[in-house]
Design a protein around this nucleic acid. Structure first.
Ligand code: MN
Ligand code: MN
Ligand code: ZN
Ligand code: ZN
Lengths: 135, 135
DNA sequence: TTCAGTTTTTAGACACAGTCTAAACCGGAA
DNA sequence: TTCCGGTTTAGACTGTGTCTAAAAACTGAA
């Protein structure tokens, strides 16, 4: 109940008109901190009724990302992942399992950022701790 | 001349039998520090004679990566990039142009690494400075 | 309520990077 | 020469994401 209202307000604040599809997708994304690919999300909402089309899931995720509601991550090829936590935080990626988890300790960079190429502005700094299963 | 000999030795040291295709690909990769996708590399060697098949380019890049001769990077979806510099070093990614450059200043992490998930070992830490063109 | 104009959703075709397979090819040893 | 393992190859195939054009759902004015 309140969850739906919170999410509706969240979308409104971002200037996104509310639709039933967007509400369902947002519910899945914001119920808990998660890292979901478009197809994983599609599968989740697909088990609900009525189904939401694939195009809408992709469009909505891109829209949410552009409006700053989710963070788009790319850590392995052929899969884009959306992070419902938009605060800057490092990630841990298991190259064997593909599992992507948060690093709750804040990894700061020592020293200043490098000089950026001329004509560019900083967007963010991605830090990914890559691990492998021990043999 | 010596370049070919240097590269031949490099492959031999890594335990990779020499073939004409591997030599051509390695020449393109190791002549200068570069970040190449499989298709970019395919295009380069494709302008030579004789052509090298797409499958061989993909197989060879994966082999070189497994043997530690190049570093596989993923910063945007739908394109894997191979870095001929295997030393750990941060990168700068322009999200507007797709350009990937090296950060020559070494960005160290302040403080210790986080505790890794049980049963895993550190592979490496990727640091990517994402920038955008200013309007 | 009607109706026109706009936005959103949708199915399906499409593009593209990467993988897989099975056959051809090659080079060295017997 | 023949044999045999490793290598290369064309082409089919997969999976993720994009595009398009039409249907559907809104919106606001008449
Ligand atoms: Mn369903
Ligand atoms: Mn050619
Ligand atoms: Zn996260
Ligand atoms: Zn580099």
């Amino acid at each position: 109940m309140t969850l739906h209202h919170d999410i509706a307000r969240k979308l409104a604040d971002a200037g996104i008109p509310l639709t039933s599809q967007r509400l369902l997708i947002a519910c899945e994304l914001f119920a808990e901190h998660c890292h979901l690919s478009a197809d994983e999300l599609l599968q989740r909402v697909g088990s609900l009724t009525p189904d939401i089309s694939r195009a809408t899931v992709y469009n909505t995720l891109k829209l949410f990302s552009q409006k700053g509601l989710v963070q788009e991550l790319v850590v392995e090829n052929g899969k884009r992942v959306y992070d419902s936590n938009t605060a800057p935080h490092p990630h841990c990626y298991n190259a064997d399992t593909g599992e992507l988890t948060d690093v709750h300790q804040s990894l700061q960079l020592a020293g200043p950022l490098p000089e950026l190429p001329p004509g560019t502005a900083l967007e963010r700094v991605d830090i990914i701790v890559r691990v492998r299963n021990v043999a």
